[in-house]
Design a protein around this nucleic acid. Sequence first.
DNA 1: GGTACATTGACAAAGACTGGACAAGCTGCA
DNA 2: TGCAGCTTGTCCAGTCTTTGTCAATGTACC
Lengths: 331, 331
Amino acid sequence: MSPDPESGVHRHPIGVAAERTGLSLDVLRVWERRYGAVAPARAAGGQRLYSDVDLERLRLLRLATLAGRGIGQVASLGSEELAELVREDETARGRNGTRQAVVGPAPAEDDIQRALEFTRALDGLALESLLRRSVAVSGVGVFLDALAEPLLRRIEEQRHAGQLTTAQERLATLTLRRLLDGAMLSLGVPNEASHLLVATPAGERRELEALLVAAAAAVEGWRVTYLGPDLSADEIAGAAVGSGAQAVCVSVSHPARRGSLMDQLRRLRATLPAHVPLLVGGVRAHRLAGELEGGGIRVIEDLARLRAALRSGGRERPAPRSPQGRAGRPQ
Amino acid sequence: MSPDPESGVHRHPIGVAAERTGLSLDVLRVWERRYGAVAPARAAGGQRLYSDVDLERLRLLRLATLAGRGIGQVASLGSEELAELVREDETARGRNGTRQAVVGPAPAEDDIQRALEFTRALDGLALESLLRRSVAVSGVGVFLDALAEPLLRRIEEQRHAGQLTTAQERLATLTLRRLLDGAMLSLGVPNEASHLLVATPAGERRELEALLVAAAAAVEGWRVTYLGPDLSADEIAGAAVGSGAQAVCVSVSHPARRGSLMDQLRRLRATLPAHVPLLVGGVRAHRLAGELEGGGIRVIEDLARLRAALRSGGRERPAPRSPQGRAGRPQ
DNA sequence: GGTACATTGACAAAGACTGGACAAGCTGCA
DNA sequence: TGCAGCTTGTCCAGTCTTTGTCAATGTACC
């Protein structure tokens, strides 16, 4: 957070700044000219060079104006005050819970920005209130695709890049988890729904992605049994049989050791009854596609595709027609 | 209630004021014009700028009018009188209303047995609906004490004795977790609630107990920031400061190495601000009691006692009078 | 030479301000 | 019961501010 003179002081031309803040070129210039909102450095030739701090500030200013404040009123605020103001607006908005005029269909980049902002400030209240409202406004399905998944990806990136502490990452992922759990809870299970088992193989500690999968399946009307991360192939197969699952989905995002993972998956496939399709999803899944596709394992690239697969596979008939084409008679 | 140097200095334009108070733009203006209900500051261009005090007053005025009073009658009242009036209206309403603090029948041994049965059968659906029903019938507080905690203990015992597979244990704990998450979600956060941070120290993988703690605190009206398991003392302390927590509770159930744990706790105590009480709970906590009690660390034996401590400690005043007796002035 | 950017001035849409009008609901009185 | 008067929320018209965008012109970089 200190203004490191070396790393991190990347300077961005105005075009990049516009892209990253969501503000137009004109607005960037006019905010500077009229209100002194930021004072970017200048190149030898006079071109503006925005620092990361500038960009952050501009993002906050934008959020403040979106909340109904005049740029002229907020442009002179200090960064601390500004961040606090934005957070206050969010919690206030969540609290009074009165009908929001704009029922914007899909949550957008904005919401992701805001969520990251609250995460950084460790403001769980504002974060939860934001996510909660998004679920309520957009519905669970859209929430998953447009907010939860991209947000999760950003958090992992930033965590990896050292821009988030463990505590911040925790706050965000656990809040997200609470929301997903709550959503799955509120999505009742239709009678006679097909039954999907979701888990991640041994060595996988990350669970949120699996939970996204589970929630997506629940949205698609499946009855989901979610067993969480780090289970051995035998445990998964045993549970699938024991609970009468009609399909199994495992999520692999950060396999500890690739070889071991492949073994696990093959073993799982071998142990599962032939008529139970096995789907593999997760950010790293596509790298394994070549090796797996042949052996009766279907690889799913992203959440949207997973939902499509589940939709076509499940629902109409008790036993999903196996998404991968060949399946024994159920029963 | 010193005038907080941070919040409260912000001035809000009329749109934000309308959103936060629930009054229309017109009403805001006309109450000012006709009755001098508030006298917001003005920007250079004449736009109204409401202070937080103004907003609070307007909220009270709104409540008073909703209770059937004429704005002309109450607009000139002082803030004190107004607040009292609203409180009176509220209690009067509560008296004749049918609000009954009916605490349903407590779930019994029966339910625990049934839950274990479903767990063994890997019937997540039945388990979930059982637990869900219990929450609905008994309320969250009773559910935690009488079902969730004992059930969790049984599951751990049986798992330990090899009577449950990993998958079965997972099914149960994750279902329980989902319920707890959902419950915390549905327990709104009261305004101005005291703020508690919950986590478990590094080396602790078990999280469910911490989640029980978090849920219990939420029932008691605290605003809870839950950071999950396996965090270093520094991370916890940093997050407590960063999020402005007024108390910290860590849960220790299966310390990997006792010595390391003690170090962590001492370090945490040393790093936390003196006025932030540190509570330690969990099944193994009482074994550490002797060694910890002295150094400004309060050990809590079980969930009921934790709730009692939280109840006496929080709520009445912004900064909870430290449950352990001695604490720096909240300032 | 083309793309990206800077500067300045002008412009138009959105929103806020003011004073006044109006309609619906309630009270009091004949 | 019916009417006058009061209260109160909403609406309107005209004016003023704020703010985003655009056009024109010039400069820097590849």
